[in-house]
């Protein structure tokens, strides 16, 4: 039977998107569970940031074997930026990575993101979506910074959930 490439790709593509949507939805379903167990006193943003922190630390450990300082600072930073962007892309975002103004500065841009859409379905405040993403990236960098003795920082310059049309993160080496 000849391969019908269009059919094969369409099925794969559909399954991929279903899986990506499920990642966001599963997270928000768990958020509801956590809030219910935490009780009415708990602030949803605190719970979300704690979750981001725990996930970030774990993801950061996965980054360690894939990074190599030997290749020089510029490729190291670019590779790190690509890993962060790649993680997001796996969840369904459209991302790009650009060199910033110095070799130790990288801009991660995201022009399309499924997270705010899913968040809306579960009634999650948009500011929480923005801050959770920032916290996740920040905590991913904690172990990476210690491991390679490089003071890494990341800051959110723009965020889709803030109505700014795109996300922009600035990843840099904090010389101060």
């Amino acid at each position: 039977m000849p391969v019908n490439a269009e059919k094969e790709i369409t099925t794969l593509w559909r399954n991929l998107h279903t899986a990506q949507n499920e990642i966001c939805k599963t997270y928000y379903r768990w958020r509801e569970v956590a809030l219910e167990i935490a009780g009415p006193e708990a602030k949803p943003l605190d719970v979300a940031l704690k979750a981001a922190e725990m996930m970030g630390v774990d993801i950061g450990k996965h980054f360690l074997p894939r990074l190599n300082w030997l290749k020089g600072e510029e490729p190291f930073m670019l590779n790190l930026g690509r890993q962060l962007a790649g993680l997001w892309a796996g969840e369904g975002a459209v991302t790009t990575v650009e060199q910033g103004e110095s070799p130790s500065e990288i801009l991660i841009r995201c022009t399309r993101d499924p997270w705010p859409t899913a968040a809306r379905q579960y009634g999650v405040p948009m500011e929480e979506v923005a801050l959770t993403r920032e916290k996740l990236f920040q905590t991913i960098l904690v172990d990476v910074s210690v491991f390679f003795s490089v003071p890494l920082k990341i800051e959110m310059l723009k965020a889709i959930p803030r109505g700014e049309g795109e996300w922009v993160f600035r990843l840099y080496k904090d010389e101060n």
Partner: peptide, 8 residues
Amino acid sequence: STVPQRLR
């Protein structure tokens, strides 16, 4: 020192 493990 507290340096994270590379191999999990």
